[in-house]
Amino acid sequence: MIRPFKYSKPRFLREALEALEKENARALAGGSDLLVELREGKSQAEHIVDVKAIPELSCFSIGKDGIIIGGQLTLNELAESKELGQTCPILGDAARTVATPQVRNRATLVGNLCTASPAADLAPPLFVLGAAVVVASKEGEQRIPIQQFFQGPKKNCLQPGQLVLRVEIPPRSTGRGVFMKKSRVRGHDLATINVAGWTNPQAGILRICIGACGPTPVLLTSSDELYQRAVCRDELLDGLATLAQDQIAPIDDLRASAAYRRSLVTVFLGRMVRILFPEEGGWPHV
């Protein structure tokens, strides 16, 4: 059972920020994680601040300034957005793999990040896209690179009185991405591992992020150099596998052993690279 608490639904950001300064205050967006925490006694929140009426969190735009996704945007709204699907399909691809259709009608992208699960499905795409989390407090707004936002398992960098307004993805002229997830079942499940890759061959950029293989999602370092150096796709693949195995730190848990996760990472990196660089012939992809 959920213990009693006080609920407010401020219409102004300032009000919400004030409310969130209280001890044991929590922001409520989709509620799909928060209500479970409350029910299971994992959260002792006494003040629940519903942020669904704050105009600053409703923004959703795709343009030359990049992509902006407000804190109220649900995963299904992202998955159903045709424009987003054309501009940056990996976000919708990732959103569609989260939980169930019912949950996706409530759960938000920002909420998915705030829970800061190492297996958060929206994290790897946002890591490879170089997204930033825009956080508001009474002192003003702050842009936090997504890597800094994730601090550890279920731990984000937010302080009391802070609220995530939106996620910003910088503009990209060209480029393509892939998202992949492996779960125990085909039905709804947490990720055993998830991976996202993004490349801009013209610029020599290749970014890979792997989820559920460490305390936070792992954005591989030096993948650009590897990509620029590789003389063929197989070399890139081997190099990436080695890089990933060095940088990830999976654990044994109920969902999988660390060894299985390591193996899946190599397998899915391979599959991803083959999709990102479909033709063996035209290497290097510039």
């Binding site: 609920y7 479970v36 939980a99």
Partner: peptide
């Protein structure tokens, strides 16, 4: 929110009523 037995339509969308206040 794992089983869907409480599914209702909230403003036309299917949601788990156990995960909505």
């Amino acid at each position: 929110g794992e089983c869907g037995a409480c599914t209702v339509l909230l403003n036309g969308r299917a949601v788990d009523a156990c995960l909505v206040l």
